[in-house]
Write a protein that binds this DNA or RNA. Structure first.
Lengths: 248, 248
DNA sequence: CGGGGGGTTGATCTCCTTCAATCAACGTGG
DNA sequence: CCACGTTGATTGAAGGAGATCAACCCCCCG
């Protein structure tokens, strides 16, 4: 049961915060109207499972607000996060009946869902949707490949720095730079989730974050609130080219 | 310069070995004709670079025969393979001008290339191409995510077993099972390329292959020719569910 | 014959995991 | 209000999987 404090979201596409970035981004008014007919909102509390790998999936949808993760689990319990879903990201695969991964809400989550079969039909008749979905899927593929470099070749310290860079960059548009020019954000993940993301143990994550703090690369208030005094320095620590990005 | 032994491939789509699996898989005769107008074949020798990351890319295309790799490199030289391109796989991203990865031929390679701008135009007018490309991209994304689990959470031995399983499975359709039911194939990669694939060093690759041989999981003739007496055993070693696959 | 590319094997080192104790923040019930 | 349990995080000590450095082999080719 959701708590009473959750705001009553408008489901009007015109007021939708992800209107211009989600699968529906390129849709015209009439196309939007047809999507509207098959859509419904769903809410999940932090920690709740959206769907289990292998489960029948009768919807696809977009993250409207909050954060969700895609994870894979081996029989012996080892888990690896394979996707981090932020607002506007798409969940589900047209043409597939069962979920391929566990999807979990890591914060309170609102999703705009479409019944799968009608969505598939509509997609086949609406190039604007298919085009946008292709574009988004190609972006995700690039992100996954970037991530493969992180997982395969970076040290624990570089992995942490990479993750912090990604989070900082991802909501850079929305986000806060303090008056002094520092980059400031909250970690949306627990240490354990970060470990699952990076292929590490939560202890190593904790140690490396402490190390980055001691070395002045980041500052922490509480466990989650991060300040980056020098973004270039953080990018160097990540082993990335320290240029060309939003923060150059 | 290509050697004289390379066969003179027909460029007739009707005789194309990847006709039913590549981007053009769903095309009707007339659509195929239009693709034919903007296509040309290119050949590369084993070891040759198809394109460097960052280079201008004025074509996209399909692998017709041979194997290519997608790799990413850090400034200090660490490299990670992020894609393995087999016949029918697609190279390049519509809408992007520069290559995002190094593409290298690991065997002699034949590609069916399309001039990029005309291809993009055609794609926008031909849902059959866009649909197929979406499907292929989603498959690649799944493969990349599978790979992330391998990179992030598996041991060196499991990584090798996983790679062998993938190779065995990938050309299972084409491939050879000996009279005794053994699965038999040739490794298309050097030890170093395997290491770049798996986020290991080539020494570790060599050791783990030797270990699997000593333990009877695989048999080797020469360095590259592999026999798998018991596919289920190999899948167990890979840490995968030992069922549901082609070899079940 | 020499040389080089690809591969194997050995010895040592190190970074990360594993196991474990401790802590802070928070909620709950007596 | 305080004891208690829980959850998320930090820190320490010990061990191990894989990296690193190095020697050597095999085979092909000029």
């Amino acid at each position: 049961m959701l708590n009473d404090r959750s705001p009553a979201f408008s489901q009007d596409c015109n007021e939708c915060p992800i209107r211009h970035r989600a699968v529906c981004a390129r849709c015209e008014t009439d196309e939007l109207a047809r999507l509207d007919e098959i859509k419904y909102y769903r809410r999940f509390e932090a920690g709740q499972t959206v769907i289990w790998s292998g489960d029948r999936m009768d919807f696809v949808g977009s993250v409207v607000s909050g954060i969700a993760t895609l994870t894979q689990t081996m029989e012996d319990g080892r888990t690896q996060m394979v996707g981090l879903l932020l607002p506007s990201d798409f969940v589900g695969r047209p043409g597939r009946n069962a979920a391929a991964y566990d999807v979990t809400a890591t914060t309170d989550l609102v999703m705009c869902c479409f019944r799968k079969t009608p969505f598939e039909d509509l997609m086949n008749r609406t190039p604007h949707i298919a085009q946008r979905l292709l574009e988004m899927t190609l972006d995700e593929l690039d992100a996954a490949r970037e991530w493969m470099l992180v997982l395969g070749r970076k040290t624990a310290r570089e992995k942490i720095a990479s993750l912090l860079s990604i989070i900082a960059r991802r909501d850079a548009s929305i986000n806060l730079r303090s008056a002094t020019g520092d980059v400031v954000f909250d970690l949306p993940l627990t240490r354990e989730a970060m470990a699952d993301y990076l292929g590490l143990t939560l202890e190593t994550v904790s140690r490396q974050i402490s190390a980055l703090r001691k070395d002045g690369v980041i500052a922490l208030e509480g466990k989650r609130h991060v300040t980056v005094p020098d973004m270039t320095r953080l990018l160097e620590e990540a082993g990335d080219d320290a240029d060309g990005g939003v923060f150059a």
